[in-house]
Design a protein around this nucleic acid. Sequence first.
DNA 1: AGTCAGCGTC
DNA 2: GACGCTGACT
Lengths: 264, 264
Amino acid sequence: MLELRLVQGNLLKKVLEAVKDLVTDANFDCSSTGFSLQAMDSSHVALVALLLRSEGFEHYRCDRNVSMGMNLNNMAKMLKCAGNDDIVTIKADDGSDTVTFMFESPNQDKIADFEMKLMDIDSEHLGIPEAEYHAIVRMPSSEFARICKDLSSIGDTVVISVTKEGVKFSTRGDIGNANVVCRQNTTVDKPEESTTIEMHEPVSLTFALRYMNSFTKATPLSSTVTISLSSELPVVVEYKIAEMGYIRFYLAPKIEDEEEDVKP
Amino acid sequence: MLELRLVQGNLLKKVLEAVKDLVTDANFDCSSTGFSLQAMDSSHVALVALLLRSEGFEHYRCDRNVSMGMNLNNMAKMLKCAGNDDIVTIKADDGSDTVTFMFESPNQDKIADFEMKLMDIDSEHLGIPEAEYHAIVRMPSSEFARICKDLSSIGDTVVISVTKEGVKFSTRGDIGNANVVCRQNTTVDKPEESTTIEMHEPVSLTFALRYMNSFTKATPLSSTVTISLSSELPVVVEYKIAEMGYIRFYLAPKIEDEEEDVKP
DNA sequence: AGTCAGCGTC
DNA sequence: GACGCTGACT
């Protein structure tokens, strides 16, 4: 028996909007610790890891660990039927091949339940080691989203370079080149508007903007984003989910001179 | 060496939105006087003339006259990457085949530079003589835009007739006819909401609505528009750009009885 | 081009 | 909190 009651139901809606473009089907893993998901994108290049800790739920009952395979587009469709202020409860009976989403309006006037078929998905759950990163950039999530969007109108890839002074996002394309530099600034009043850079070593890595733009779908989940970079390690783009956990996106860098190396 | 710093960077964004649908490639001419453009539309029917006077820039350096050929769609793409409050600087080295647009966020935390390739465009720069017009109509730009849009759902051409009483916009089409009359009204408190008519001689001219609707893309640049009419002269549709200059559109009238005259 | 959603403003 | 606007998607 599984019953997870989330007062801030629109969190779930936002999570699904953030993930469904990248991953079509995935297993949600439910244990006493929390509600989590780990999945590769359909082209097996990027990885999403979501964690919603049990403490973040108003009520959390999970008798035994279960893994529920869901089609994320269908799940998103159902969650869209929840009002933004609705309380969402996820229910599943042991051994059942369905999951039920229940939506209660704040004043309890409306109660809806949506039952969705589960599916069998085989997925390797990768252990992701905690790593030391050369540089960790924290910046307003909207700014990061804007930069990725802007640069993708010029080129396909972005070079993210971190120095003590700031972080530089660069691209080049047919019509020209573009560089956006964000300076570290902690002077701003509000911490969610500040950009901070924790750098142990300068680093410069190249990524496909297409994936970055998918990641920024998670922008509504958090006002800030953290980008952790190390040479030869996948970048981690993390959006903290207040009081609950996080959604993290991993993406392997392109090997810098990949294109130039295509020589006989 | 060329370096033009414009605090109100979104002016440039608006200018490009206004011009890019009409003209795909054009030379921007830069002299000590200002930054200007003159170009025919792709079907050589309408003409755009833009002037941004040097005094309107916060900093204006132009060592020698240069003409920079740009693809306006690409330029618009790059300018879209500027924030609405960003300070925009246009830079070009002498003899360089690129131009750089630099965007600074108001708090200087973000600095972006976009380098765009220039192109060779041969264009005849027409001297446009100052003419005396039979009638000059000044009206709210949004009202003019609305009228052109409304009439184009009925017909393809508009007859603009000016009498002392007012200005009449008429069209006829398969489904019927339409006339919109705007009376002179200076009584309104705000000058930008008033319609004034300076008429030396009544005039009635016919124009293609398709072009008029392109011209009204400049509506965000000014709250008023000036329409200058003379028989046998191209109409001038002018949007003043505060403190800086103007954008003017010229369009030759259709010969009134062109269609009816197709008789043996 | 028209519709819808999200953001900013009043 | 509601409205209007701007940008994204169909």
